[in-house]
Design a protein around this nucleic acid. Structure first.
Lengths: 222, 222
DNA sequence: AATCTATTCAACAAATTTATTGAATAGATT
DNA sequence: AATCTATTCAATAAATTTGTTGAATAGATT
């Protein structure tokens, strides 16, 4: 094989992988699968897509070896093939937020007009944990919490939050987190908490960003 | 704006950026521009593309704000817009090498059948530098060396290497590097050096990978 | 073995991406 | 001001990607 044929082969393969990510629905699927494993039907529901279409996008990701499957009874669960998939999505996400004004603007405007709330970085949360006085709240659906969460975080899915407010301490600051920087559960939770007299802020990023930094996590066994 | 409209907007924008990278020629252009800035004609020549076609690909990257231009006299020089572009390319590259058997296999086979040589990682090179006994050889074209190189590296573009072999010490180990893991200059250099009785190995990755880790670099002023 | 059901497949039209060609343009240089 | 030239644009055909529909399938469950 000559030099040019070698390069063509390598870059064509890399473009193939890049293409498999280059679609809004597939990026959203990747972000979702960073939370754990899900059957097609749940993925389709989360992403607001017809099942057959979600399945097609999943085939694309599977063919590119970015996701793997795991059959349990009647259901086929999809999951990310490994950490590098999330790392690449994270790099793309950060590139987009930094480079494309539209994204930063849309995120800020959405947050501001709908919530206007405070947020903390992962580093800031680490400091708060060291100093002790903080309650960490996981507002994702319970199955995602069970699959992995920040050590000592309390699970309180957003849909249950209003009923379970009393369980939370009034004095300690509450940091709510969810799937990632574009996940709205944490915004909604902080808005509700603040309105109800709690001191609360959201974590800017999500659980997978915490996990990839090798910060302490727990898994719920069953 | 509601939740779904917000997410659609964000993921569509991120997919737009991803699409702008999702092409073999554009990935190769990004890797080249990680070495410095180049006019269209040089880019086209390096990538083996008609100029009009290279220009079109550059427009795609410019529209996505991944590259910027800089006019000098009659020429328009293209460069990466910032570090995150290289970081994302690096993430994609590592994902590809790890996930896609074809890539690893092609790289290994190409190296083995053509050269069968040794290589060292960036961490290993750092150790070798500490212990003193190593010569670092930059075999990229001189303009790329001038734009930025590993501190204390000697510039000896591969095309001049055979004439200038005598300038190199026989006893010290020589580590040659070039643009990145798919760049062949370093392989060719190590093959020639080894054949001529020098002790040589290539750096697995390239100068931009060194630079992004904040390891010591120099720029040639003029 | 028959049934059930989550998922995939197949086929199609619409939209997008790509390479090629030759002409147009912007902005230096003379 | 005229010329030169590196780069971009415009137009086209071919190839690829996308969403939709309804049927097919594989593998549990009964």
């Amino acid at each position: 094989m000559n030099k040019r044929a070698f390069k063509n082969k390598v870059y064509t393969e890399l473009a193939r992988i890049t293409k498999s990510m280059a679609n809004p629905h597939r990026l959203e699927i990747i972000e979702l699968l960073a939370q754990g494993e899900f059957p097609v039907e749940q993925i389709a529901e989360q992403i607001h897509l017809p099942i057959a279409n979600a399945s097609q996008h999943l085939q694309v990701l599977k063919l590119a070896q970015l996701v793997e499957i795991n059959r349990k009874g009647n259901f086929i669960f999809y999951r990310l093939a490994n950490d590098n998939v999330f790392k690449t999505w994270k790099a793309l996400r950060e590139l987009g937020v930094e480079r494309i004004d539209t994204i930063e603007k849309v995120v800020k405007e959405f947050r501001k007009s709908n919530f206007d709330l405070k947020s903390v970085t992962i580093d800031e949360l680490v400091e708060k944990i060291k100093s002790g006085k903080v309650t960490i709240l996981d507002v994702r659906p319970e199955s995602e919490y069970n699959h992995g969460h920040i050590t000592n975080a309390i699970s309180m899915p957003f849909k249950d939050l209003s009923k379970r407010l009393k369980e939370l301490p009034k004095r300690k600051e509450i940091i709510a987190y969810c799937r990632g920087p574009f996940c709205v559960y944490a915004d909604e939770a902080v808005a509700l908490l603040t309105k109800s007299g709690y001191k609360a802020a959201r974590l800017e990023e999500g659980f997978p960003d915490w996990q990839i930094q090798n910060l302490p996590v727990e898994v719920t066994l069953n």
